[in-house]
Design a protein around this nucleic acid. Structure first.
Length: 694
DNA sequence: CGAATAT
């Protein structure tokens, strides 16, 4: 991978070593240990002391990953932690803020490397890392001539994405990025200033637009960069008649006018049930458990009160965010960030997206400048905490989106590690479409006298969907999959594994159905491209792992096809929830093989879906009923796909940088494959309405 | 179990 060796990755030897010694090594040697007992925030001890549940956790913790570090494993976070606290705290206060050299990490490889890097990184040198960072893997797939352009564009876009999203929607090109921090910083200031202005008039956007030569290229590009695009596009539409707030349901909930107005501008004037139920309590500062069906606007449910409360007072200090929103996937983090962006601006706060696969620098410098709201995936946030770049000891509000998922095995440890650093007296908001007892441990440990609002019973959301469970023969699976996916309109296909996603997408393309896979094994650059291509209609079929099961909003997904049955009924609901969003209709087709029959039926029952399995084979009516049909297009190669989703967009009026001298992908050639009715249009207009939060 | 989260 990083041929330049500049990227902070473990070498193979280190990985091996880590693995080998994983269970036995002193945490000091692993270099990851310190974080565990770092509990630098004295208040987190209070929490422990204050609640009764901890003993239980000790036990469980033994089962969890803590036995990886038997040295301190279980006691580290408890009584023992206190001692850990003291010495670590010193170290911490020492190095943490100033970004100076890291104290305690010098004993660890991983961290030490960070330290080293940290020095260089902070003051420049972003190029090489970025390169490997965002694109490293995806690149191998590219052909040769246009390849360079492709990948360029790839990382350029990532960077832009990241930059844009945190708040300033700077549309930097990769050239801009190279300009480095100067530009970054410059870009941030306006964001700050814009707070109360940006919907009165385009304000700083104009400045930006006057920047030489960028604009013509930027324009078309932005259309295919989904959510943020949507958000910023709205603002662009600009000048503005005053909006009446009379009869506005959000105003009635006690939200500040600027926010209500801003929402109204996007046509959001009537709160959904979940919003109506939770916002008042959240505004009061209570801990809230919120359950609302998929696509019912949970982002705003926590976002609005969060921003309102933060705006009431206080100022973000360097490295100390005032609120943290934790989400399970990067895509969701981006979506939440984008959804909140206009609101954050309008109320005069700052936010930042903090997630893996994206360059560190913007995240580090944003933190250093001070952010009110951090929207984060757990891994990167912990990373930043360990680097001393993020200190959660002044967090006033912590949100867990998809809380039940975050409380599950693979995530829980990280979540606890994060929440342990957050002051106990702060507010906690937990949301999910499937909030069940699985979060009890988290609730007991971190919430105080929570109110629970379950506005729709878990099954309500499925009533606007048609559900079909098809019992098929193994040899028909490929064909049936293709027939269901070969329809006009967007289709999301879920599979169990990353490999499966690639495989199924490939099989679909072989049969002439234009499909792309999305999963965690792709580089962030690829992930972004694929999702963007799906959102803007270039690719009508998305084959995804459960990375896309939760929260991700794409308009007009008509069919969700589960090629592999979901792991449990909650997953069924979340996957299904990618269609029939915000009151629309949708169809869910789930394939089951003979040996999955019983499990499948149980799943349906548990999910509250009133459907029974039916035998099906290629060409059956059910398939037609779902809009599917036998594909008849020519195979689409991987290269064709890449060409489609990669940089081009050139056909949308004006070429972007990456296109110059490069190939013109466009979709002229294959764009109408895989959809019988042809004429499927991306409908990018739909994305300019800021619906993503609802 | 696999996937997600991190370098």
């Amino acid at each position: 991978m990083p041929k330049d060796g500049k990227k902070a990755r473990w070498t193979r030897a280190q990985k091996l070593e880590a693995k080998r010694s994983g269970a036995r090594t002193q945490r000091d040697e692993t270099g990851r240990g310190p974080r565990r007992d770092r509990a630098a925030n004295p208040r987190s001890d209070r929490r422990d002391g204050g609640r009764g549940g901890e003993r239980r956790y000790d036990d469980r913790r033994g089962d969890r990953r803590y036995d990886d570090r038997p040295d301190r494993g279980q006691d580290a976070r408890r009584g023992d932690r206190r001692y850990g606290d003291d010495d670590r705290r010193n170290e911490r206060s020492f190095g943490e803020r100033r970004g100076g050299e890291r104290r305690y990490d010098n004993d660890g490889r991983g961290d030490r490397r960070y330290d080293d890097r940290r020095g260089e990184r902070r003051y420049g040198d972003r190029g090489p890392r970025r390169d490997t960072d965002d694109n490293g893997r995806g690149r191998r797939d590219f052909g040769r001539g246009d390849r360079r352009d492709d990948r360029r564009d790839g990382f350029r876009r990532d960077d832009r994405r990241d930059d844009r999203r945190d708040g300033d929607d700077r549309r930097s090109s990769f050239r801009d990025d190279r300009r480095g921090e100067r530009f970054d910083r410059g870009g941030d200031r306006p964001a700050r200033r814009s707070s109360y202005r940006d919907d009165r008039r385009p304000s700083y956007r104009d400045d930006r637009r006057e920047r030489p030569a960028r604009r013509d290229f930027d324009r078309p590009r932005r259309d295919d960069r989904e959510p943020a695009t949507a958000v910023t596009a709205t603002r662009e539409q600009g000048p503005v008649e005053p909006i009446s707030l009379e009869g506005n349901g959000f105003a009635a909930l006690g939200l500040p006018e600027v926010l209500v107005e801003r929402l109204a501008r996007d046509g959001i004037t009537a709160p959904f049930p979940i919003q109506e139920a939770t916002i008042p309590d959240a505004l009061e500062g209570r801990d809230v458990l919120g359950r609302g069906r998929t696509g019912s606007g949970k982002t705003l449910s926590f976002g609005l009160p969060l921003l309102t409360r933060l705006a009431k007072g206080g100022k973000a200090r360097s490295g100390q965010p005032r609120a943290v929103v934790l989400v399970p996937t990067r895509e969701l983090a981006m979506q939440v960030s984008d959804a909140l962006q206009p609101l954050v601006h309008v109320i005069g706060l700052r936010h930042k997206l903090v997630a893996g696969g994206m360059p560190y620098e913007p995240q580090l410098s944003a933190l250093e400048r001070g952010v009110d709201v951090l929207i984060a995936t757990p891994g990167r946030l912990i990373d930043l905490m360990e680097r001393g770049a993020a200190d959660l000891s002044r967090v006033e509000i912590a949100v867990l989106d998809e809380a039940d998922h975050m409380a599950e095995m693979g995530f829980l440890e990280a979540i606890e590690q994060i929440l342990d650093q957050v002051p106990t007296d702060g507010q906690r908001l937990l949301f999910s479409a499937t909030l069940d007892r699985g979060i009890d441990t988290v609730v007991e440990r971190y919430l105080t006298d929570p109110v629970e609002h379950a506005t729709d019973d878990g099954t309500a959301s499925i009533s606007t969907m048609d559900h079909h469970a098809l019992l098929i023969e193994p040899r028909h699976k490929k064909t049936v999959t293709a027939e269901v996916a070969n329809r006009s309109g967007r289709t999301v296909v879920f599979v169990r594994t990353k490999l499966g996603a690639d495989r199924v997408a490939g099989e679909l393309r072989d049969q002439g159905v234009l499909a792309a896979s999305l999963h965690g094994g792709l580089s962030q650059g690829q992930r972004n491209k694929v999702l963007a291509a799906f959102k803007n209609g270039v690719v009508p079929v998305l084959v995804a792992t459960d990375v896309a099961a939760r929260g991700i909003h794409v308009d007009d997904v008509g069919v969700v096809l589960q090629v592999d049955p979901p792991a449990d009924h909650k997953d069924y609901l979340h996957r299904a929830g990618r269609t029939a969003r915000a009151g629309e209709k949708g169809t869910v087709v789930t394939l089951a093989l003979p040996h999955q029959r019983r499990t499948m039926q149980r799943l349906l029952d548990e999910a509250g879906v009133d459907t029974t399995l039916q035998n099906a084979r290629p060409g059956d009516d059910v398939i037609r009923a779902a809009g599917g049909s036998r594909p008849d297009g020519a195979p689409i190669s991987e290269q064709d796909l890449q060409r489609l989703i990669s940089p081009p967009r050139a056909n949308r009026g004006g070429r972007s940088y990456g296109d110059r001298g490069g190939r013109q992908g466009g979709r002229g050639r294959y764009g109408d494959r895989g959809r019988r009715e042809g004429g499927y249009r991306g409908g990018r207009d739909r994305f300019s309405r800021g619906h993503s939060a609802r």
